[in-house]
Design a protein around this nucleic acid. Sequence first.
DNA 1: CAAGCCGGTAACTAAACAGTTACTTGATGG
DNA 2: CCATCAAGTAACTGTTTAGTTACCGGCTTG
Lengths: 225, 225
Amino acid sequence: MNDSGEKGAKKRSRRPVAERAAHRDPERTRAAILEAATREFAENGMGGARVDAIAERAGTNKRMLYHYFGDKEQLYLKVLEEAYVGIRTAERALHIGDRSPEEGIGELALFTWRYFLQHPEFLSLLGTENLHRARWLRQSVRLKELHSHLIGELSQVLEQGKKQGVFIQTADPLHVYLTIASLGYFYLSNQYTLSTIFGRDLIEPTHLNAWERHIVHVTLASIKR
Amino acid sequence: MNDSGEKGAKKRSRRPVAERAAHRDPERTRAAILEAATREFAENGMGGARVDAIAERAGTNKRMLYHYFGDKEQLYLKVLEEAYVGIRTAERALHIGDRSPEEGIGELALFTWRYFLQHPEFLSLLGTENLHRARWLRQSVRLKELHSHLIGELSQVLEQGKKQGVFIQTADPLHVYLTIASLGYFYLSNQYTLSTIFGRDLIEPTHLNAWERHIVHVTLASIKR
DNA sequence: CAAGCCGGTAACTAAACAGTTACTTGATGG
DNA sequence: CCATCAAGTAACTGTTTAGTTACCGGCTTG
């Protein structure tokens, strides 16, 4: 997200500015707007987010926002795309095929849960986008190919497990991923209403750890022979 | 939701109006506003919902809306409360303890999935409310006690299953319910982004039926000995 | 049968909103 | 050292919004 060093350095050839570059730093401003927008959209949704609020959070003004991103909708789409790129990039670094199939699936489940836990804004953005029936995501050309890798790798691990006789033959890669994602997403994104109606603070570390173990247990129990 | 028959009949003692009671029917107007608001809030969230749109959908005007419900926030809370009352009421009619523990849990899973499937507006409202960290639900006095029944009954079924030796000793009622709800909620509420990124139409009957079976399978696999 | 009350209408208001325009500043290259 | 140009500011505009007010009309009841 903060790539202010690289691209900026190319333009500023002589006298690299170095000290007090707060003013007149386009990359920095751009990144600040994107981060502020991520928070604002995550907290208030598309309808509730305020362009003025984003500009203020970013320490700049609306003029710059419209200059870099066109309008509110394009900015929102950019935020959403970056969020997806974030999780899929982190996922690729996992290499779930390196250990035993069982460990591989467990690792994917743990990773997904912890990523969700550390990136609540990603969950919020997904919620908002689904409220609008993926209206903006569908327009994105960048994201279509980003997800095939995940299913491909997961599919390989499952096949290996089936050959070894540790997984049931009916285990389906998309179903397994959806199971993992479901258990993490629902618990975290609905924690507020759930904590309220059941009178238990679900975000407490004890409950959080218990649910982490539960996710791994459920995922493996559903595919093991 | 549509209780226009009962309360209305008490007031109109003589000459029961009967024919063409469209005009000047407070109960009907109130119900129409509530239903229109449910759809508007479900489709657009709290920030995106428009009071004018609700009035128009209800075939009335803003004056009546403010007259019956105070303001936008109180109307929203009423909508949310009614939605919770709806699912918890339907749940009570289940009596999951009547059959074997295994069948009881399977029945609860099926019921929850099908209720979610038939009431997409309930899922949307939950999403909206959680985006705002249960800000309005927490103010509700009506809903605190509504949910203890569910956990109580589920707890009994699990205990029975443990005694019979069909369920594992560590099975927890809240975890079991959250598992069932997770699998249904995520699949349906996130169907739009999921269908987009995985290139599969998740709402197709074939996939819907497969997921229904999957939910029951996963739930039981996670608690069976 | 008239008075008033209640369900209902529509035009209005002040504030908030997305998006624009006119202007300032300061670094750079000729 | 000055002309240029891009980064950045702030005040403005037309529109949309939640909420209000002034008014209408017909049913009920004394």
